[in-house]
Amino acid sequence: MKYAFYPGCVSRGGCPELYPSAVKVSAKLDIELEELKDVGCTGAGVLPQYLSDPINARTFAKAEAMGLPIMTICSTCQGVMSQANYRLKADPEYRTKINKEYLSEEGLEYKGTTEVKHLLWVLFEDYGIERLKSLLRKPLKGLRVSPFYGCYIRRPPEAITPTKELNRRKNYLDELIEILGAELADISGKGKCCGFPILTANEENSLAMVGKHTGEAKEKGADFMVTPCPLCHLNLDGNQPRAEAQEGKEIGLPILHLPQFLGLALGFDPGEMNLKRHIVSTQPVESKVSMLT
């Protein structure tokens, strides 16, 4: 099982703990990764489509040439690439135009065959849950966990959940929490926006969202929240202290990246998963995990 690995900017920038933990967990699971190095940022929904589609087409073409599907570890990268890929696959004329105008000079061509899958999807759709279960060393019994998906791994439907079968993608994280032995602390905002995209335009609203979602998880008795999106992590973890100040309430909810969460259940110790690097202290999680046998 091998993927062209697209780690995304944030996994080595704002969330440097994510990249190594994803690499370690993948190795443990025997998922082989060949990193796409010579590719660009997806655009993250900030760059306009007329710039980001060619950049992403270039990424897809490179993976296609390697004969590998792409694996991401970021809901935002996943979403932006899924949408671009949807447009490029659905409209051959558009694809031809992009190939001609942007890729041909480099000798590249995107034929429209690359699949792009987040690690979360890989587990359910390619890897197999039974196989995952057989590798669990430390089921997270007694821990209450709230899911937080990140918008782009759930919507828009035509790119993310194009079939009834794939509608299940909206529930993978909920399922995974229970598969890893933890208890689901469900929250109403799990599929909503974390606020990160408007941190510049409207900081107050952005922080209010952080306060709302983390606050709700806390009320539901969550020990921590898990997210497959490092951008959500940046806001939910990094800006939680400011959200607490703005909303006038204490929250203190640790936020774990998906690979870290997996890693703990696979038997890595918290240090190996770089939990210390988070802004909100993960100490209570670490001590609970250390009590598990």
């Binding site: 929904g45 918008c151 782009y152 759930r154 919507r155 828009p156 439907p157 909503k192 926006c193 606020g195 995209p197 408007i198 335009a201 409207n202 609203n205 969202m209």
Partner: peptide, 16 residues
């Protein structure tokens, strides 16, 4: 202006 297009988080809930 504030409260306009740049305040949208483009979460695609509206499309759903």
């Amino acid at each position: 202006e504030p409260k306009g297009i740049w305040d949208c988080v483009h979460c695609y809930e509206a499309d759903e």
